[in-house]
Design a protein around this nucleic acid. Structure first.
Lengths: 99, 99
DNA sequence: ACTGATTACGTCGCACGTAACAATA
DNA sequence: TATTGTTACGTGCGACGTAATCAGT
């Protein structure tokens, strides 16, 4: 998920330096992360020929799909967090017997 | 994502040993993974009192939400993979000018 | 030369497996 | 006591930052 967030930022900025700044990290780690992501997915995501950073077809697809996945992920996290805090509020009821 | 897959397996089996076997790994790493996930989410997911493994409220929420997220994730991966293979088939068209 | 991206390298944390331990039935 | 889950520990990979290197303008 963190990889996707980094990828989206680079894809929006088309610039590793500004993306790294927005993400609060340095360029080298960001470059490495993108490489790891490309290796993980088995697909090149950016064309780095020349000074221009441009998206490949796979990268473009990911730009379309990743935001929705990230939204769902964050929603899931907040739901879990909410459930956990409710659980703390109420005493340890016997969930054991239910599930 | 791998963490979610492990969590779901444990949640289905209610048994770390069988879950580890299904996942093709040993129990200790699985136990650690669940702990990491709980730490990451900031919520206890399982009740390990006694020999019974039962879900907490947060765990139950995650059991409901995680499968859909995993499906979307796998779909995204296959879309990216497809785009990459098409890209290989067609010559390096000037995506640069488009995106 | 200058700007911007990639390697090089040292360090830290995570993931795994094997082995030793704790607890429950 | 046997079964199940958790620590302990050693190893290897991933991620970060700093510094050095390479490429394009």
């Amino acid at each position: 998920m963190r990889h996707l967030e980094c990828f989206l930022t680079v894809g929006e900025e088309r610039h590793f330096g500004r993306a790294a700044e927005r993400l609060g990290m340095e360029q080298p780690p960001l470059s490495q992360r993108i490489r790891r992501l490309e290796k993980e997915l088995g697909a090149e995501l950016f064309d780095r020929s020349g000074k221009r950073v441009s998206l490949t077809a796979a990268g473009h697809t990911l730009m379309l799909e990743a935001p929705e996945l990230l939204r769902r992920y964050r929603r899931m996290r907040s739901l879990v967090e909410r459930a956990a805090s409710r659980e703390l509020a109420e005493p340890p009821r016997p969930w054991t017997e239910i599930y």
